[in-house]
Write a protein that binds this DNA or RNA. Sequence first.
DNA 1: CATACTCTTCAAAAGTATTTGAAGGATTCG
DNA 2: CGAATCCTTCAAATACTTTTGAAGAGTATG
Lengths: 191, 191
Amino acid sequence: MTKETHTLWPSEAAVSDVVGRLMEFWGFKRNMGRIWAVLYLSVEPRSAEDLRETLKLSSGAVSMTLSELLRWGVVRKVWVQGERKDFYTAEVQLWRMISRVFSERERSEIKFAIEAFEEALAELEVLKRSDDEKTRERATLQYARIAQLLELSRLGQKLLDALLATAKLDAEPLVRFLLGRDKARSPSHPS
Amino acid sequence: MTKETHTLWPSEAAVSDVVGRLMEFWGFKRNMGRIWAVLYLSVEPRSAEDLRETLKLSSGAVSMTLSELLRWGVVRKVWVQGERKDFYTAEVQLWRMISRVFSERERSEIKFAIEAFEEALAELEVLKRSDDEKTRERATLQYARIAQLLELSRLGQKLLDALLATAKLDAEPLVRFLLGRDKARSPSHPS
DNA sequence: CATACTCTTCAAAAGTATTTGAAGGATTCG
DNA sequence: CGAATCCTTCAAATACTTTTGAAGAGTATG
């Protein structure tokens, strides 16, 4: 019933925009970022209609974007006393969000790559024993190069795993390590 | 003059494809990945025409993609004795490539976000002292939330810096740390 | 300096991705 | 049960990205 179209403050608009862009950069739809940001900055849960008006989107877009956000577990449905509509809030545990997204998305991507590299290596293994000199040379070089790619991918995978393991507990551990390294270098922001 | 259209082996095609996808996933054009991969797996430097034929692209596409790759420093021009055309090779130092891309692209992205968050905080700083109760509440919550985003961004920035500093020297140091953590947990792939 | 060859550019075409809004479900309320 | 409200779906429209290929600029060669 509250018909006041929550107008965004300039700072809210700016943050939503930046988050939208960041998300886009990370391969999501811009509106996912914008909607999440609005919810993240909202004192109370918001309805779909509310978001639709605030961000000037179609009802369909809001519905689809929200369901995607729900699927990624970065937004939750909330029941508000005596209201018919659904209300939504943002997950505020940033690390949780990130780890969820990473573990679902980046991991499968990298897993796929790793498998492909392994297969390629297996094929080249055979060609390295070819009768043809040229073929052997080519196969040998490629084998070495792909092995590099594989190594890098495995490393990326481990990095991700480490990050995820870390994030699952708390924000800090890995963080600390990295901040530590940095301490001596730039005095930067006093805060 | 060598008119033999280097046909790709299945393993080459597969790897080029995967690398293309990975690159696409990371926000580049798929063809950048494919071209780079072909060069990376090539025994000798290749000409633009050669790539055009191998990958069935238009001359324009090859030209533009190559110049983009050159701009990112992941491919280099090479002069081949007695040849009129330009020849190209891939940067084979993977860490170098990655650190170059990261430092140019991700860093500016994150820097921009950080600035935006800081500005938003400054604006909210004022609103937190508003006469209106509601406004104060809203501003206070948003301040706290954006501060979280800012913290996270700064962390990301530091992580990147650490990675870059590492990569600039060698592939290993950061790597070692991460591999260490992992050792005890999952026996996984026996190789 | 004319010719041949190569590379680049760019407007148009093709291809993708996102958004819209109307139709249809689903749920609650009287 | 019927009306009202809200949510979802999906084909069509729009917006955005990438690719094409022809025109032209640049350069080495005879």
